[in-house]
Simulated scan of single mutants.
Amino acid sequence: MADDGMSPHEARQRASWGIGIALGMGVGVAMGVALENMGVGIALGIAIGVGFAVAFGAAGRHRPPEADAEDDGAPDDAPEADGERGPDDDEPRNG
Rank of each mutant, 00 (worst) to 15 (best):
G57Q: 07
G26A: 14
R93D: 10
M6A: 06
F52T: 01
D71Y: 14
M1V: 11
A43W: 03
E80N: 10
G26Y: 03
A53D: 02
N94K: 02
G73L: 04
E36K: 15
M38W: 14
G26E: 08
V29G: 02
R85K: 12
A53C: 09
G83P: 04
G45E: 02
V54H: 14
P65N: 12
L35E: 11
G28M: 09
A34G: 05
G45C: 14
A67H: 09
A78V: 01
G20Y: 06
E80Q: 13
G41Y: 02
V27I: 15
V27L: 13
V54K: 15
R93N: 02
G26D: 06
A78E: 01
A78Q: 00
V50K: 13
H62I: 03
G49K: 02
A15E: 11
G49S: 00
A58T: 09
A43T: 08
G28R: 00
I48G: 01
G51I: 10
P8A: 04
A30R: 12
M6E: 09
G18W: 13
A58H: 10
A34W: 02
A74N: 07
W17Y: 14
V40A: 05
A59S: 10
A2H: 11
A59F: 02
F56L: 15
P75F: 04
G51Y: 12
D3F: 12
A59R: 10
M38R: 03
G60H: 00
M1S: 10
G20R: 04
D4I: 07
R12Y: 12
G49L: 02
F52A: 08
G39D: 04
A59P: 01
M25Q: 00
D88I: 12
D4H: 08
P87D: 01
D76S: 09
M25L: 15
A47V: 10
I48K: 00
G49V: 00
P75A: 08
F52Q: 03
R14I: 01
G83R: 05
G49D: 01
N37T: 08
G60K: 05
D72E: 14
E84K: 09
I42H: 00
R61M: 12
I21Y: 15
P79T: 09
V54M: 15
G73C: 08
D88R: 15
R61A: 11
P8S: 05
E84T: 06
V27G: 04
E66Q: 11
G86A: 07
D82H: 09
E70G: 15
M25C: 09
G51T: 09
G95V: 02
W17A: 04
I46S: 00
A67Y: 06
M38Q: 10
N37P: 08
G60L: 06
A67Q: 05
R63F: 08
R63P: 05
D90I: 09
A74I: 03
P65Q: 13
G41S: 11
D4M: 07
G28V: 09
H9T: 08
D77Y: 14
